[in-house]
Amino acid sequence: MTTQAAHRHDHEHHDDARSFVAAVEHASNERGLRLTPLRREVLELVASAGKPVKAYDLLDRLREKHGNAAPPTVYRALDFLLENSFIHKLESINAYVSCHHPAESHQVPFLICDKCQCAQEVCDERVADLIEAQAKAFGFRPQAQTLEVHGICKNCR
């Protein structure tokens, strides 16, 4: 096992939309959460997007099936999914991505390509541990963390 592999979370990644939605349904049931049909539909749209997706793009997709969908409807569903760590919000581009491991609450950094807008979740506990240690050294108690690194991905170079 490599040193980097030893520091990664010991969990299963859910890269395809179907297994991701199934994992969220399972986690919701275990936590006693209600994954309503609308929340599930928004989750499926985020998962199937393949890259970060903006709330109004989700709204447009919902309106294709439900002509009366309104912004608060989408934002309420997104808030539920965020609060329960099923998706992440990329603050710098104001977009949402599915979480690779929705069964656990965590903070992870993202690598975001400025050309194609793809985002890669970095699953390495050393990053979070380092930030937490530095905060503690300064007497700082973090309540939220957003670490996004912008650049150009391998496919766009």
Rank of each mutant, 00 (worst) to 15 (best):
D15N: 14
L43R: 04
E25T: 12
E25I: 08
E41G: 11
D16Q: 06
A49L: 08
V42W: 10
L38F: 11
A22L: 14
A22F: 07
G32K: 13
L38E: 15
G50S: 03
D15C: 05
E41C: 13
E44Y: 01
L33N: 11
A47R: 03
R34I: 13
V46Q: 10
A49K: 01
R39C: 06
L33C: 02
K51N: 08
K51P: 07
E25V: 08
V46C: 06
R39F: 05
E25C: 06
D16G: 02
L45A: 03
A49F: 02
A49W: 02
V24F: 08
T36G: 04
A23G: 01
R40N: 04
P37H: 08
S19L: 10
A47K: 05
E30W: 10
A47N: 08
L33A: 08
A47T: 00
R39H: 12
S28C: 15
L45N: 04
V42L: 08
T36H: 05
E30A: 14
L43G: 01
L38W: 10
A27C: 01
A22S: 13
G50E: 03
E44G: 11
E30L: 13
V21W: 01
V21C: 03
D15A: 14
V24G: 03
A47W: 01
A23V: 00
D15L: 13
S48D: 08
L45Y: 00
E25D: 14
G32R: 14
P37W: 10
D15E: 15
K51Q: 13
V21N: 00
R18D: 15
G50F: 05
D15V: 09
T36L: 02
R34N: 15
V42Y: 09
A47S: 08
F20T: 00
A22N: 13
V46E: 09
P37M: 09
E30I: 05
G50T: 03
T36D: 07
A17E: 08
G32H: 13
G50L: 03
